[in-house]
Simulated assay, not measured.
Amino acid sequence: MKTRYDLHCNIAQTLNIIGDRWTLLILHELLTGKTYFNDIKINLPGLSANLLSERLKTLEESGLVNSELYSAHPPRYSYSLTEKGKALETVFNSMIIWGSEHLQPCYKEIVDPETNERVEIGYYSKKSGKRVNTIRIQPIETK
């Protein structure tokens, strides 16, 4: 992983892993079930095969993606998200919700399948499980 941001910040360190051009879109393709190189490439017009290969390798090195050889001659791989990679689904959902509120035109929205009403993101205490109405971002003291 190349370090672009040498900052002690969760956002900066996350961007060091997923902040390159096309990376989020590649992850989104994997999240929606595209597992083969050519399927990902077809769904992302403008992304070169070399760049897709490079990004997949970097994502694998970062522990977000697994690859599995399914054809030896020529070598072909299928790709899947690790648990760490799947955990990014909330990030994508947040971006979809933001887009549904702020983009014109809007392409997607997230709804409750029972009522078809839009949903919102909420914060919950990991300890109690209760919804938290206000949050505070604070530094973690390192030793």
Rank of each mutant, 00 (worst) to 15 (best):
P139F: 04
E141F: 08
H28Y: 15
T90Y: 14
H8C: 14
S100P: 02
R136I: 10
E61N: 08
K86G: 09
N93G: 13
P45E: 11
Y124C: 02
I26M: 01
Y5D: 11
L24H: 08
G63D: 03
N43C: 10
F92L: 08
Y79L: 00
K126H: 10
L59N: 03
S48Q: 06
E120R: 13
E120H: 05
Y77L: 00
S78M: 02
D20T: 15
Q138P: 00
G99D: 07
T14K: 07
D6V: 12
T32F: 06
L24V: 13
F92C: 06
N43M: 07
D112S: 05
L15T: 09
N66A: 07
M95H: 13
L44D: 13
L27V: 08
S53M: 07
T82F: 08
S100Q: 04
S53W: 00
A72K: 10
C9G: 11
K2W: 15
G19E: 06
Y123V: 15
Q13P: 05
N93T: 14
S94V: 11
P113W: 04
G129W: 08
R55T: 09
I11L: 15
D20Q: 15
E109H: 13
M95V: 13
L59I: 03
T23Q: 04
T23Y: 06
V119S: 04
R21S: 14
K34R: 14
L59D: 00
V111A: 14
S128Q: 09
M1Q: 05
T23C: 09
Y70M: 06
Y5C: 07
I135S: 09
E54T: 14
S62K: 12
S128K: 06
I26Q: 00
Y70F: 04
E120C: 09
Q13R: 13
E109P: 07
R21V: 14
K57T: 12
A12F: 05
T115C: 05
I121N: 06
L25G: 11
L59P: 00
Y70K: 08
S53C: 10
G85Y: 01
I110E: 03
A12L: 08
S62P: 00
Q138Y: 04
A87P: 03
G129P: 05
K57N: 13
E60H: 01
E117W: 03
Y107C: 15
D39F: 11
K126M: 15
M95D: 07
I96R: 04
